[in-house]
Write a protein that binds this DNA or RNA. Structure first.
Ligand SMILES: [Mn+2]
Ligand SMILES: [Mn+2]
Ligand SMILES: [Zn+2]
Ligand SMILES: [Zn+2]
Lengths: 135, 135
DNA sequence: TACATATTTAGAATAAGTCTAAACTGAGAC
DNA sequence: GTCTCAGTTTAGACTTATTCTAAATATGTA
């Protein structure tokens, strides 16, 4: 995605595209690594001429979640990860490498209607733990 | 479950049933509330004639997870919850009350085989977020 | 009893995340 | 062009969940 498209995306979601927000959003949109806030800070601060504070990283991540530009991913205790892929998808944790891969929503059956009348499901999240097979 | 059964359970899993471990295991086995470590400490320390330290609560919870007597449940960032229900099941978070309910595994289709040859799934966890309907 | 080992303890340390109050920025109003 | 003000960023303090540490206790065995 081009920088200009990202700028338009933020504007369309009501987030003012400041330089700090732009570089964080660009990083998230261009990676598939599901980084933590700390990883975002490390990666992004090198690409910036000026300093970038921890508070701004957290503020920006929370704003982008709020605005629906990115989502939080919980796969392990004590750490929140961030994901610019907001399409219908789930996650596969390779327990060997710790890598987190996207599993498209259509690779699993739809579960929205499975729980009957008692539960009104807004959303659901499947986390798979396992190993990537060779090749 | 009787106290003696719980004692046998711990012994069978190689966990020595000390008084602290017993009272923590009993509390977890008798609740459906998916408590945090802090909640376990609060609840259990009132039932004990002596003091119970935070470290022992965390050590015991980790030992019980290790031994397969209980499992960790991640439904929100920054908090680990504990669950003595180790049967095949998933979780429903009522976003109004915050309550976490068990969803038996057979209420959703089996997903083990869905991901094809590339992924070897050891386990998976579905978290539903939504509302409980009336009645 | 004596010794070794496992367990528990209080409190220090760490790490993720939030809050605060001051400094900075940029878009109008004049 | 300066003034003003709301919004943003900042460094660092703070909070909270969890782990670590080193000393004290309990347990099991010889
Ligand atoms: Mn992608
Ligand atoms: Mn039950
Ligand atoms: Zn993803
Ligand atoms: Zn459960």
């Amino acid at each position: 995605m081009e920088s200009q498209e990202i700028e338009k995306l933020l504007l369309s979601k009501g987030v003012k595209p400041t330089p700090q927000r732009m570089v964080i959003a660009e990083f998230l949109i261009h990676t598939h690594s599901h980084p933590t806030a700390e990883e975002v800070l490390e990666e992004v601060s090198t690409k910036l001429p000026c300093a970038l504070s921890r508070a701004t990283v957290y503020n920006t991540l929370n704003s982008l979640v709020q605005a629906g530009v990115i989502q939080e991913v919980f796969t392990e205790p004590g750490k929140t990860r961030y994901d610019a892929n907001i399409s219908d998808h789930h996650h596969f944790v390779d327990v060997k490498s710790g890598k987190i891969l996207d599993i498209p929503g259509d690779m699993v059956p739809k579960l929205q209607e499975q729980l009957g009348a008692k539960f009104k499901v807004h959303s659901y999240q499947i986390t798979f733990y396992g190993e990537l097979n060779e090749q």
